[in-house]
Nucleic acid binder design. Structure first.
Lengths: 208, 208
DNA sequence: CGTTGGGTTGACCAAATGGTCAAAAGTTTA
DNA sequence: TAAACTTTTGACCATTTGGTCAACCCAACG
């Protein structure tokens, strides 16, 4: 049973408006969470009328789900790139750096994700199980092999990854707090070398 | 101008019901965020009628603010206890342990706080500036003095504190994700020794 | 035992919000 | 340019939600 539905290529307007809506929605969802966001807010931020938004998306939830799906790819990418064939410590430090860059470049995405997980991942749990979990398990194995080969200090790879996620995303998700404490609007100067040191000292298998 | 308002001692019923409401509200706010929570949910969780709840609190916001205020004390406590006169590394590791215990024992409080900060701390920014900032600055100085005395490796105290907050609270705030990845309902076994190692290796001023 | 005051609630309200729809305005195509 | 389509919107709707209020319940006390 071939799928012979003639899927029309989306017009220029379709493309432009869908992008606008998703961009506006990312702003709003990231700032207020799913329930806190309103279609009117999204509509205004997108420069479109509310019914027009519902012409492009079936409803509020579909917009949110679309964003979450798009995000998942971007989100896993830095971890995917971690290469089992590379130099262990370099690979992990490079991963930390990529995550930190992402927190800086895509804070809205980070907060969207944080919001979703905080609320118990109601719309994302399947994704997590299907996409993130296998990748997580695979990379844990890679790290474990590095450890077994004596290339890294013996630590629990799972908690290592959690610590990397926690420390890097913290700068995006808790940015409001950090801005108050550092009295600066520049996004957390000095975080890069600090995290480099933190994870180097943890992982370098040097005899003390 | 003496405050001669005769403040009546709250009755037993008052005390019991206010506690009930705040406990129910903590559940609901922690799970759904401020906007996502409804008075009806809180009322049901508390086993009281909605008007009855509004007999004890002026409105949704007052309940939320009350929770936030109560939280602030509990939240700062572990950091307050960090003693400038103690053994530096021990003091910091003990602080990490207290924070980790708190994430385990009070996950609702942690998520309430995380939600508030994620939304840009609309109701808490003043508190942060007034209470957290001075404490943060003071403890940064303490740590800096320890470093200057050669008792700790030279790192940026501010990012050290951020890293402690991030790694410990992660286990409460991102618990949904962690539960999926670890395939267990026990709260993150093995986190304690991992974080001990992480921060010991960062801070021990041993020559490598 | 009746009054008083704290505690409780069903019924209600106005505003906000997600969503619908028919008709109008543009755009593309034959 | 006229038909055929895609896109846009004003007006509207049902539901949810924070909040009000007058009446009611009930224990304590004179």
């Amino acid at each position: 049973m071939p799928d012979d539905t003639p899927v029309k290529a989306p017009s220029r307007i379709q493309l432009r408006n869908r992008r606008r809506i998703l961009d506006a929605a990312l702003d709003v969802f990231a700032e207020h969470g799913y329930r806190g966001a309103t279609l009117d807010q999204i509509a205004e931020a997108a420069g479109l009328s509310k019914p027009n938004i519902l012409y492009y998306f079936a409803g509020k939830e579909e917009i949110h789900v679309t964003l979450l799906n798009q995000l998942m790819e971007t989100w896993l990418d830095p971890l995917v790139e971690m290469d089992a064939g590379g130099e262990p410590l370099d690979e992990i430090l490079a991963y930390v750096q990529r995550k930190l860059d992402m927190a800086r470049d895509l804070p809205r995405e980070s907060r969207l994700f944080a919001n979703e997980i905080l609320q118990g991942a109601p719309r994302m749990a399947p994704h997590l199980k299907a996409d993130l979990k296998p990748l997580f398990d695979e990379k844990c194995h890679v790290i474990q092999r590095w450890i077994d080969a004596g290339k890294l200090a013996p630590i629990d790879p799972r908690h290592l990854i959690f610590a990397i996620w926690a420390t890097t995303q913290h700068y995006a998700d808790f940015g409001a707090q950090i801005r108050v404490l550092l009295d600066t609007d520049q996004p957390a100067p000095g975080a890069d070398p600090f995290l480099r040191t933190l994870f180097t000292n943890l992982l370098a298998p040097t005899v003390r």
